[in-house]
Design a protein around this nucleic acid. Structure first.
Length: 242
DNA sequence: TTTCTGACA
DNA sequence: TGTCAGCA
């Protein structure tokens, strides 16, 4: 399957002008050309675009992305790959109950932080092209992740522990709140989730709880100031950059 | 509709 | 760094 620049731009959600600029200025994505000189993007280019967007979302300047892409993939056990693949297949075949079961089993069998970073996050990245079918699959996956995380959080509440509130702060992808919560389950914390962060946060109203703020992008001077202000008001805050 | 270049914020 | 106008 090949795509014109217009189609490709729509699929991956990047402006066509920007795609050309990325190619010309930073050598990112060099598609084949038609005899007439028009760009012809392939499915491999889509995968590459998703990898690029992953770095951009993490706040990496586009000029530095090429070096990061050239780096070999961070080593991942075959086990993780196989598990990810297995989840993807069940999702793709609409076997939702089976996928749910697999996630619950995996959560019992493997450490949760690795499950999140090695399996769930990569799987969601794989599903982030702007194609209706993929977005639908990702929503289904997110629903299962949220349900499972709630289940784990409730379990943690049965034991004593520190009280936490986790939410997003300048965060584009709300599911990341749940993934971060899931990473922290089973460690003797009692965590509540604010799934939809309010437009303006007021952590000072619950100073007795520790606040975990999941955030994308850079900690600007303004944001650092805000955190200092909250801390001066006696709120314990941990910022979790993605 | 796409190409490219140069320019702007 | 992303986007736009203008031209072919």
């Amino acid at each position: 399957m090949t795509y014109s620049i217009g189609e490709f731009a729509r699929l991956c959600g990047i402006n066509a002008t920007t795609l050309r600029a990325w190619q010309n200025r930073y050598g990112l994505l060099k598609p084949m050309r038609t005899d007439g000189g028009h760009r012809l993007y392939s499915d491999a280019d889509i995968q590459q675009a998703l990898r690029i967007l992953d770095w951009v979302r993490k706040g990496v300047p586009i000029s530095q992305v090429k070096t990061l892409l050239a780096r070999p993939e961070p080593r991942r056990t075959n086990n993780w790959c196989a598990l990810q693949e297995s989840m993807y297949q069940r999702l793709n075949e609409g076997k939702i109950e089976s996928l749910r079961q697999l996630l619950y089993d995996s959560g019992r069998e493997y450490p949760r932080p690795e499950l999140v970073t090695e399996v769930l996050r990569p799987l969601r990245s794989k599903l982030s092209a702007n194609i209706a079918a993929m977005l639908t699959l990702r929503e289904i996956l997110d629903g299962i992740i949220i349900a499972y995380t709630s289940f784990c959080l409730e379990g943690d509440k049965r034991a004593p522990g520190d009280n936490y509130l986790i939410t997003g702060w300048h965060l584009t992808d709300p599911c990341e709140i749940w993934l971060e919560a899931l990473r922290r389950t089973g460690q003797g914390h009692r965590i509540d989730v604010l799934p939809v962060p309010p437009a303006a946060l007021a952590p000072e109203i619950f100073p007795e709880r520790k606040w975990l703020l999941v955030t994308t992008g850079k900690l600007t001077a303004v944001r650092k100031k805000q955190i200092e202000r909250w801390q001066q008001q006696g709120v314990a805050i941990e910022v979790i950059p993605l």
